[in-house]
Simulated assay, not measured.
Amino acid sequence: MSWNKFNLYNLAHRALPPQTSRKTLFQQRWEAKRLTRGYHGDHLTERQWQRLFNAGGRATSSTLPSLTFAALERRLEVAVFRCLFAPSVMAAHQMIRHGAVQVNEKKMLYPSYRLKDGDMITVDPDAIPMLKRGESPKEPHTYTPRDYSQPFHFLPDYLEVDYATCSAVFLREPVARPGRSEIPSPYPPHTHQLAYEFYVRKRG
C-alpha cells in the first residue's frame, strides 16, 4: 500500500489475474498468497497475517475470503493511508509513532490500533506531505497529491474525510457480498479466494 511511482507501475501491470492454465492448484494458491500478502500485509509479520485466516468470519463462503482482509482496514495505519493523509502504510506508521495522529482527540501511538465505528482520526497538518500551507495564516491548506498518483486515488465508502480539518471518521468496517467487495485491492476476488484456500488448507 504505497503511492510510490514504482509501486504504482507494478500494481498497474499486475492488475489482471496471473496466467494459471499451466500451474497446479497449489501453485495458484501460493501465487495468490504472495500477491495478496505483498499488498495487504507487507507491514505485518507472518504470524499476524496468518491470524486473519485463523479468525474465521460470519459471512457466507462466497464472501468470507474478501472479508478476511476487512479486519486490516480497521488498523489505524491503514486508515490513515486510505484517507490519503500518508503516501504509504509505512509512512502512516511513522506518523503515528511520532505522535502526529489522534483518535477521538487523544494522541494514539499504536499503528495497529483497531478503530471502532464512529472513531474520529485527526492528523497534524505539518505531517501530511501532500498538504501545502497558504502564503498567509488566514489561507487554508491546499491538498495537492503527486501528479502520477492522482489516477489511483480514491476514498472508500466506509471513511468520511475532511481535508480542511485534516480529520476523518471511520464509519464502519467494509462489507462484501457476492459480486461486490468494498475492500480496496488491486486483485480480484478470485485471487482472494485462492489465498484464503492456501491458508485454510495449510491450517487443516
Rank of each mutant, 00 (worst) to 15 (best):
26 F>I: 12
197 E>S: 09
194 L>I: 03
55 A>K: 11
146 R>E: 12
87 P>H: 01
18 P>R: 09
78 V>C: 05
155 L>N: 07
157 D>T: 09
57 G>R: 00
196 Y>H: 09
130 M>W: 14
102 Q>Y: 00
45 T>Q: 06
96 I>H: 03
7 N>S: 15
148 Y>D: 13
41 G>E: 04
183 I>H: 03
107 K>C: 10
64 L>V: 11
5 K>H: 14
144 T>M: 13
38 G>I: 02
107 K>H: 10
124 D>K: 07
37 R>W: 04
72 L>G: 00
183 I>E: 04
49 W>R: 01
36 T>S: 05
166 C>G: 00
180 R>H: 15
25 L>V: 13
91 A>F: 07
23 K>P: 04
101 V>S: 05
46 E>H: 07
88 S>E: 06
66 S>E: 14
29 R>H: 12
142 T>R: 08
112 S>G: 07
14 R>H: 12
25 L>D: 14
80 V>A: 08
130 M>G: 08
117 D>C: 10
89 V>H: 02
10 N>R: 14
132 K>V: 12
87 P>I: 04
179 G>M: 04
86 A>T: 05
95 M>E: 09
52 L>M: 01
89 V>F: 00
92 A>F: 01
154 F>S: 11
37 R>V: 01
31 E>D: 15
51 R>W: 08
166 C>S: 11
77 E>I: 03
60 T>N: 12
54 N>Y: 12
99 G>R: 03
171 L>T: 12
84 L>M: 10
77 E>W: 01
60 T>H: 08
174 P>A: 03
153 H>M: 14
28 Q>C: 10
127 A>D: 06
148 Y>T: 09
148 Y>M: 02
96 I>P: 00
71 A>K: 14
142 T>N: 13
71 A>Y: 06
112 S>E: 14
175 V>I: 14
98 H>Q: 15
98 H>V: 09
50 Q>L: 09
57 G>Y: 01
161 V>R: 02
60 T>E: 10
171 L>K: 15
45 T>S: 14
91 A>E: 11
41 G>L: 04
188 P>V: 11
168 A>R: 04
131 L>N: 06
76 L>A: 05
12 A>D: 15
15 A>L: 10
24 T>I: 05
123 V>G: 01
87 P>N: 08
29 R>T: 09
138 K>M: 09
51 R>H: 08
13 H>P: 05
120 M>D: 14
147 D>F: 11
96 I>T: 02
72 L>I: 04
200 V>M: 11
155 L>T: 12
94 Q>N: 04
199 Y>R: 02
202 K>Y: 11
92 A>C: 02
2 S>Q: 04
138 K>Q: 13
155 L>A: 07
33 K>L: 12
109 L>N: 10
109 L>D: 13
28 Q>V: 12
76 L>I: 00
142 T>K: 13
198 F>E: 02
94 Q>G: 01
199 Y>E: 15
172 R>A: 06
200 V>E: 13
99 G>Y: 02
22 R>Q: 15
126 D>Y: 10
86 A>R: 03
117 D>R: 07
119 D>I: 01
150 Q>D: 08
163 Y>K: 11
174 P>N: 00
